[in-house]
């Protein structure tokens, strides 16, 4: 039992609990907060996986910007109380079926994991993933996708503006 493994198990349990909290909470605000908690634990996991840059933007962009947007919309629409909306509809079979199929998917993934993945060895060398290395990759081999992403974001901005504009 290495210290790393202990930390991982603790974080894993927290993140799974947070995800389940997202799944079950009746209040949208709580759900969003659970999701932020999940993102935060995953950010720490990124650090442990030698990805400090991603860990930082996970917190700043995902947990910060995107989730703030979510919270903002929830409050704008007054949709935080879900009790009324979450009553059972005619789709009774939906929930058990979803859980069952999800379990099946998990079993399949675990099967693949056991039969194919666990034998492959880890790379001996550790990677350097500071902002400089990321930057070299972004503006080197990934220049075109990077530029395309900027266009995508621009389109998203315009789309959001057009969609929400008052007629």
């Amino acid at each position: 039992m290495t210290p790393d493994l202990i930390v991982f198990i603790a974080l894993a349990i927290i993140s799974i609990l947070a995800a389940i909290g997202l799944l079950t909470s009746r209040n949208a605000i709580y759900a969003a907060l659970f999701l932020i908690l999940n993102f935060a634990t995953v950010a720490v996991l990124y650090l442990m996986l030698n990805a400090p840059f991603l860990a930082v933007i996970q917190v700043s962009v995902y947990a910060g910007a995107i989730m703030v947007l979510f919270l903002f919309v929830i409050m704008l629409l007054g949709a935080e109380r879900l009790a009324g909306a979450e009553t059972q509809s005619e789709m009774r079979w939906q929930r058990p079926l979803a859980v069952g199929l999800g379990a099946l998917l998990l079993i399949q993934a675990g099967y693949v994991f056991i039969t194919h993945f666990s034998q492959s060895p880890a790379s001996p060398k550790a990677i350097q993933a500071g902002p400089m290395e990321i930057g070299m990759m972004l503006f080197g081999p990934y220049l075109l996708p990077f530029e395309v992403t900027s266009v995508l974001l621009l389109v998203a901005i315009i789309g959001a503006v057009v969609l929400t504009r008052d007629k």
Binding site: L22, L77, G102
Partner: peptide, 27 residues
Amino acid sequence: VSPYVLLSALLFTIGVVGVLTRRNAIL
């Protein structure tokens, strides 16, 4: 890294079930 991958699979499945069972579009 295998624990990380397992955790990823578990979280993914929880997400799938969430998509299929929640009725609030935001959730």
